[in-house]
């Protein structure tokens, strides 16, 4: 084996990316942890070390408890929908039927449109005397304050996130279905299995790694939700639709409470890491 490069060549190739990742990923990563041990609320220009006080503050704060609960509800509602509906859509679309391209385009459209526009569109649907309240009125329900009633606001936001993600996850499943074992489908048909049986016995087992992947990606993106909340509710009413990233944003950039914001960010980091590690373990275990 001839060596056709100088010893330092690999580092030169890596250098530009290393500078960017170092400056905008690793440095801020460690900064976040350092900031989380400081107190900025008394003097923003001269913060003092306060150990784990910010974390203790968060643990004792009913507001933060509410935030964590909302984030958890968001996960528990959005993730199953984003794992299952796109799976069904992908199986339906992965057939030789007419109009597939049109279906795919329309279902994918929400993915490419900016979340800000999507949120504005939904805000209009959710208006007090808007079209959605008209529709539920048809089946005899009273108008709902979709974004203004603390009982509903979080779920109204979840609907937008799910709606915007369907096409994205559907395409991930479709890509995986392309490599599904065709001979097994044929064997199923010969054995007289129907549509649903066929997919339960062949498609779903084939898609297990993809299911795990979609679960992880959708969980992490549910944890990172921000724009929908910012545009539609600003976290309100009464913190009812506020999740962790919005809380971090508000604490950092509106209250200038950098220490508390960073402590919340560290907690977010830990949650995301747990999800990523579960994914790695699950993946590596299933692969071979």
């Amino acid at each position: 084996m001839i060596s056709y490069y100088k010893k330092y060549a690999p580092y030169l190739f890596l250098l530009p990316a290393a500078i960017v990742l170092g400056l905008f990923f690793f440095l801020p990563f460690f900064d976040t942890m350092i900031l989380s041990f400081k107190d900025y609320s008394t003097n923003i220009y001269n913060p003092s070390w306060i150990g784990v006080s910010n974390y203790i503050y968060l643990m004792k704060s009913p507001e933060f408890y509410k935030i964590i609960l909302n984030t958890f509800i968001f996960l528990v509602c959005a993730v199953p929908l984003l794992v299952i509906i796109p799976l069904i859509l992908a199986i339906m679309i992965n057939q030789k039927i007419k109009g597939i391209t049109i279906y795919k385009l329309l279902i994918y459209l929400p993915v490419i449109v900016s979340i800000v526009v999507a949120a504005i569109a939904f805000k209009w649907l959710y208006a007090q005397n808007g079209i959605l309240n008209y529709v539920i009125g048809l089946i005899g329900l009273k108008p709902i304050g979709w974004l203004t009633d603390p009982r509903f606001s979080l779920y109204s936001v979840i609907i937008v996130t799910v709606w915007k993600g369907l096409g994205y996850y559907m395409m991930i499943y479709l890509a995986a279905l392309m490599s599904a074992p065709k001979d097994l489908y044929e064997a199923c048909e010969i054995d007289g299995a129907n549509f649903i049986q066929k997919h339960l016995t062949v498609s779903i087992p084939h898609l297990m790694p993809t299911l795990a992947l979609v679960t992880t990606i959708s969980s992490i993106s549910a944890l990172k939700v921000f724009a929908e909340i910012y545009v539609m509710t600003k976290g309100g009413p009464l913190n009812s639709s506020k999740t962790i990233v919005y809380y971090i944003y508000e604490r950092a950039f509106e209250n200038l409470d950098l220490g508390i914001a960073s402590a919340a960010a560290v907690i977010l980091l830990c949650i995301v890491m747990v999800f990523s590690i579960i994914n790695v373990v699950f993946f590596e275990g299933k692969k071979y």
């Binding site: 690999p10 890596l14 990316a17 290393a18 990742l21 400056l23 905008f24 990923f25 690793f26 440095l27 801020p28 990563f29 900064d31 976040t32 900031l35 992490i220 944890l223 990172k224 921000f226 990233v245 971090i248 944003y249 950092a252 950039f253 950098l258 914001a261 960073s262 960010a265 560290v266 977010l268 980091l269 995301v272 890491m273 990523s276």
Partner: peptide, 26 residues
């Protein structure tokens, strides 16, 4: 090589939203 590989891989686990404040300060 291994260390660099895993260092890059680990950034996948760092959501921008969690580090945006220090990024802003930088």
């Amino acid at each position: 090589k291994k260390i660099i590989f895993y260092a890059i891989l680990s950034t996948i686990m760092i959501p921008f939203q969690a580090i945006m404040l220090p990024v802003y300060l930088i």
